[in-house]
Every structure is written in C-alpha cells, then in structure tokens.
Amino acid sequence: MAATVFMIVRLRSLFAVVMLSGIYSLLAAVMFVVLDAVDVAFTEAAVGAGISTVLMLGALALVKSEEKTPERTAILPLLAALVAGAALVYGTLDMPHYGDPNAPAQKHVAPTYLMESVPKTTVPNVVTSVLASYRGYDTLGETVVILTAGVGVLLLLGGRRRRRKPGKEGE
C-alpha cells in the first residue's frame, strides 16, 4: 500500500494515478478482510475500487490527463505533512493492541450489541442490525449525505444541458 501511495504522489499521468488509487482501495479491502471486517471490505471494494475509479475516469475524460509540473518544490507543505504524520504515529503508540479485550472499544457498548442484538432483532449479521436499528439515526444521516451529493452534482452539471437546448450559442 505504501508503494502505491508513493507512486500516486510521484506519477504525473493522471490515468495511472486513477488506476493506482483503485489498486490502493482493493488492497485496503484485502486488509479489512484480514481484520475480519467483511462488510467494510465489501463496501471498500465496491465503492473505492469499483465505482469511484469509474467516476474518476469519467471526470478524467473532461480534463487533461497530465498533471502540471509544479514550478517550485513545496518545502513547507512537506514539512507540515511530516509533522502531522509523526504526531499521528506518536498517537498510535498509546493505542491498545489489536484484539486487546480490555480496549475501550470492546468495553463500551460493543458487548451489549453482541449479546442483545441477535435475541432482540433475530438478525444474524450484527453489523446490519447495529447499522440499521441501533444506529438508525446515523445511517439516515449517511443516506441524506448521499442524497446531498446527488443533488449537488445535478445542480452543478445537470443544468448545462437545459441551457444549451434552446440556443446553441454561448460558451
């Protein structure tokens, strides 16, 4: 994954960058499978590697396929990125180990969900019952976010066709 990211930063051909970001998503999906998060892996593979690659290619058809070379090397952003990255790595040192039963994530509401959700909802896939039932508000919010994205794209790109139909002049 690190190699993919490095190539994405280095390459100037946007087509290759789109393909590599698809590969990156696929690798992330594999990582989620290794962590036993099949639902997340499924989403990552379908959305990240599948549809967003296609959407990026669609957007790429509208713009030039070569990235402009920057006129000067950016030292300050590089420094900022390095400091932020180092801070994040430092933050992970305090994190509990993977699979630690005493981690806060395992102590808070997760046991309740795991113990109660199957008798209460009789839905075998706990992810689904947490997502749709216990966390129904969150999922409603996510759906509204997607709705907003669709409306935004329609407003930005959908209007142009109507403007063009009456008279072909302009632009």
């Binding site: 549809i51 959407l55 669609g58 957007a59 509208l62 709705l147 669709g150 794209v153 329609l154």
Partner: peptide, 20 residues
Amino acid sequence: VGITVASVMATIFFQFAGRS
C-alpha cells in the same frame, strides 16, 4: 438506502459521462 445509493451513483456517472 439501496434506492438512494443506486440512483445517486447512476446519476453522477451519467452526468459526468454524458457531459464529456
């Protein structure tokens, strides 16, 4: 969720691809 996601994804693609 399924209906909204499918419609939005198809719409976004049609808008981008249709425009080019």
